[in-house]
Design a binder for these strands. Structure first.
Length: 489
RNA sequence: CGGGGCGUAGCGUAGCCCGGUAGCGCGCCUGCUUCGGGAGCAGGAGGUCGCUGGUUCAAAUCCAGUCGCCCCGACCA
């Protein structure tokens, strides 16, 4: 009986654990349509906080929001050869509207490059109109063969930034800058460390000149591409005749970038921080940071405790911490549920701090704080509760990142490695393997075929090994790149 | 699309082989007692057994078909 309250363990079946924990923590639920999901308030609350923070970061880097339509003429998709080839298999196409067959089918956007650059072409005449720095928050649809809650669903929410520049240097700078924004967000807010780098040609976005990505390691040691930033060069501007007059008076195609992160990040959050008790939401993204569980026996005591809890809540709410924003506190006033049952429930939902407030505490003018991440209990005075809670939240945020980084590093493999050893790792415990690569597509494809591992990124300098790689993991020829290999979602 | 599994109350399931009017746990509702780690007792509500057809006096159970979902694999953020 107690067993059906327990989650499957990560060790026994990571995939079952993931599905259960997402459903039971009420982040999301399956929809009646195959491959689609409903994002429930507890999940959407996290998304809203992600959005708010990212949106601020985009604005701070000079971007504005706009909105482009859901429907794209089918012919637009076909204008960029690589792009259409990449997306054709997963398009949802509308053929009828208003009871009539449409003259031209409309594609439900899988991404918005085509419609956006078609519009930019219309808006830009001169280099003085550049750069254009626009972001949009939207839903997109990709008809995937196999879906998983948050990680890959038919429809998902994301943001897509689309910029246009007068020079390739500026476009490259923008591409790198936004990758940096993603990294900062993921580490500082999600407490999810990432490796940044460039994608191999085989893995890059359909239509991009170069794709950069941030890659995180999940607890099953698989990689998760958490965000991408593309330097599109002039591929789309040529396809859509997006030109501008240069300072010198000539005509040139614009240089574009696009970059995006999606609700997939929530899946990353779950698989980075979740444990066998449930999910763990880092304080900065938690819709509720502190849950107060009042403890009482008799009715009169109940009234007193609720009053005390409410008072503490108000005090915390009013407390201005270093970072702007109020402490987000919830009092669990439900009757007929024992405190212990509430503890389990809030642990499942990943609230960073639980505050237990009972008669014994009130007597001593104190409260008990319990960290979700470590389970450590501390007793603090109600006099300093605001500061203590804020400090603890800060500490939790930090230690979640540290724990995730330690886990990643202890499952990363560096240095010269034989292909046999590589296979042992990939087919056994999994993890990130940094190894030399000759740059040949044949070696890359063979390794993927034989081990299911792919090049996640060609890591940026800071993530590369101290000693340069000498030989290609597969063919033994001189290594041209150091590649990060892993199985991935 | 290939392989595997599953559709019985809100959730998890038993019953199916061997047809005979559907059971259990959790949850839910009411009341009393409880309440510092998943409460106890008593009473109660809730099911066209995924759908369609067939066999039969009789189908959750047997047969045929069909729909859906989940998991594993091939494609992808």
């Amino acid at each position: 009986m107690a067993d059906d309250k327990k989650l499957p363990t990560r060790a026994a079946d990571f995939s079952a654990w993931y599905n259960e924990v997402v459903l039971r923590s009420e982040l999301a639920d399956y929809s009646p349509v195959r491959g689609c999901m409903v994002i429930r308030p507890r999940g959407y609350g996290i998304w809203e906080r992600m959005q708010r923070q990212l949106d601020t970061m985009f604005k701070d880097t000079g971007h504005e929001n706009a909105y482009f339509p859901l429907f794209i003429p089918e012919s637009f998709l076909k204008k960029e050869a690589q792009h259409v080839e990449g997306f054709a298999p997963e398009l949802a196409v509308v053929t009828h509207g208003g009871g009539k067959k449409l003259e031209e089918p409309l594609v439900v956007r899988p991404t918005s490059e085509t419609i956006i650059y078609a519009m930019y072409a219309k808006w830009v005449q001169s280099y003085r109109d550049l750069p254009i720095l626009i972001n949009q928050w939207a839903n997109v649809v990709r008809w995937e063969m196999r879906t998983r809650l948050f990680l890959r669903t038919t429809e998902f929410l994301w943001q897509e930034g689309h910029t246009a520049h007068a020079t390739p240097e500026e476009a490259e700078e923008e591409t790198r800058k936004m990758l940096g924004v993603y990294r900062d967000f993921m580490e500082s807010y999600m407490a999810m460390p990432v490796v940044t780098g460039m994608k191999s040609d085989a893995e890059k976005f359909a239509g991009a000149v170069r794709t950069y990505a941030v890659e995180a390691m999940m607890q099953d040691n698989k990689g998760l591409q958490a965000g991408t930033s593309h330097n599109l060069g002039q591929n789309f501007s040529k396809a859509f005749d997006f030109t501008f007059q240069t300072e010198a008076g000539g005509t040139e195609y614009a240089w574009n970038t696009s970059w995006g992160v999606s609700t997939r990040m929530i899946g990353g959050l779950v698989m980075t921080h979740g444990d066998d008790k449930g999910i763990q939401v880092p304080p900065l993204l938690a819709p509720i940071e502190v849950v107060i569980v009042p403890i009482y026996k008799a009715d009169d005591e109940r009234a007193r405790m609720l009053e005390a809890a409410e008072k503490v809540r108000a005090e915390l709410h009013a407390w201005e911490r270093r970072a702007p924003g109020k402490l987000r506190v919830h009092v669990d006033k439900r009757e007929g549920i024992k405190p212990g049952a509430k503890y389990y429930e809030w642990e499942l939902r990943g609230i960073p701090i639980r505050m237990e407030l009972g008669p014994r505490d009130i007597e001593k003018n104190q409260a008990v704080l319990v960290r979700r991440d470590t389970g450590v209990k501390t007793t603090v005075s109600l006099e300093t509760i605001g500061e203590d809670v804020a400090d603890l939240l800060h500490a939790i945020q930090d230690s979640m990142l540290t724990a995730a980084r330690d886990r990643r590093e202890s499952n990363s493999y560096r240095g010269e490695i034989t292909y046999e050893r590589f296979r042992e790792i990939i087919e056994g415990p999994g993890g990130f393997v940094y190894a030399g690569w000759c740059g040949g597509a044949a070696c890359e494809a063979a390794i993927k075929e034989e081990t299911k591992a792919t090049i996640r990124v060609l890591p940026d300098e800071e993530f590369r090994s101290a000693e340069p790689m000498k030989n290609c993991l597969k063919c033994g020829a001189n290594a041209v790149f150091e590649a990060l290999w892993a199985k991935a979602y």
